[in-house]
Amino acid sequence: MRRRRKHPSGVDPDLLIRDAAKLLRPPSRRLFLRGIASVGALATLTGCDIIDGDTSENALRVISRFNDWVQARLFNPHTLAPTYSESDVTRPFPFNGFYDEDEAPVIDGDKYRFEVGGLVDNKKPWTVADLYKLPEVSQITRMVCVEGWSVIGSWQGVRLSDFLKIVGADTTAKYVWFQCAEGYSNTIDMPTALHPQTQMALKFDHKVLPTIYGYPLRIRIPTKLGFKNPKYVTAMWVQNNDAGGYWENQGYNWFSGL
């Protein structure tokens, strides 16, 4: 796909500046801004840096949290994402990440261990071979990027709900947190984790996941935006606190449901 460069991909100079600005800002000012942050207060302020800057984003994040709540209620655990046929699969399927394709982490399958932690009975780490022995399901679904473009892919792997059962996870916990080899992370809600199409994808197009698609393990969630589909997953924690995520922490909507 030709249109993957803006966000989230590469190192965005704006992001760097934003991160730097965050470090420079005295905490007292941030607290103050948080205190007065509201759309009502915004209306009395002027200037582009305020309309476009962190002040407004902090206020708008309050509404974004409300939108998380709305989306959790809109989410129907029985509604399936539309599925497609083999001929609909986007080929070549694009690489996408916050770094360039040649910077994608190359994982040694022999040394790789998938760690499972938090509210689960069995915390034994999993080898790639162990994972391949799990019952396989297949899906051809649309992956929608937060940027607007979308692609159709074919993924095979184990249902996350099956895996959660196998490791004896407490499915009354609120969240599942995923950690990735390159420092990426995501937290998802338990109802989405238990959705029948939420998958621990080990293959793409019936072949072992290539490095660019997240070898050896990606979480495929057709009911969420693409950035909520972590690749190179090395650990999964079942827990009751929201550990956030790479893009979520920067202002992208947390639930990001489709």
């Binding site: 803006k6 966000h7 704006d14 984003e57 937060v146 940027e147 893009w247 920067q250 909507n253």
Partner: peptide, 8 residues
């Protein structure tokens, strides 16, 4: 200002 801000 940027995509996340616009989405907010």
């Amino acid at each position: 200002n940027w995509l996340a801000g616009a989405l907010l």
